[in-house]
């Protein structure tokens, strides 16, 4: 009546820990974000890189330059609008943090 065999015990001993490890791995590592922002804006670090570049290029105090809006461009980079002591400028920056263009509006 008893169908338990040594070979079964061997596979159970090997298999159960792997199965449990598989469960614990899949449940503890979410692969996608739970939240997002309603519109894609540039990461804060990239916005500030644009502000820093504008301060250097236009000789404006960095305390007078503020990124006021941003959006994702067609190339995957971002366009950042800057307010510079009463003037405006637009900065194009790649995801790698390289400024590709910077022009007064």
């Amino acid at each position: 009546m008893n169908s338990f065999k040594p070979r079964s015990a061997f596979f159970m001993a090997i298999g159960i820990p792997f199965a449990l490890a598989g469960c614990s791995t899949s449940s503890s590592s979410p692969t996608s974000p739970v939240v997002r922002t309603s519109e894609a804006t540039a990461p804060a670090a990239l916005q500030l890189t644009c502000a820093s570049e504008a301060a250097t290029r236009f000789a404006v105090s960095s305390d007078k330059i503020l990124p006021v809006s941003s959006r994702q461009g067609d190339d995957g980079g971002y366009l950042v609008d800057l307010s510079m002591d009463g003037q405006q400028a637009t900065c194009a920056i790649g995801e790698d943090g390289v400024v590709t263009s910077l022009e007064r509006a």
Binding site: T37, T41, A44, A45, L48, T49
Partner: peptide
């Protein structure tokens, strides 16, 4: 990771994404 020219100790608030750095 946060590449910035701002010095350590600075607070940067991204109000759109609801993060404070």
């Amino acid at each position: 990771d946060f590449k910035t020219a701002e010095k350590p100790g600075t607070i940067i608030i991204d109000g759109d994404k609801h993060f404070l750095y």
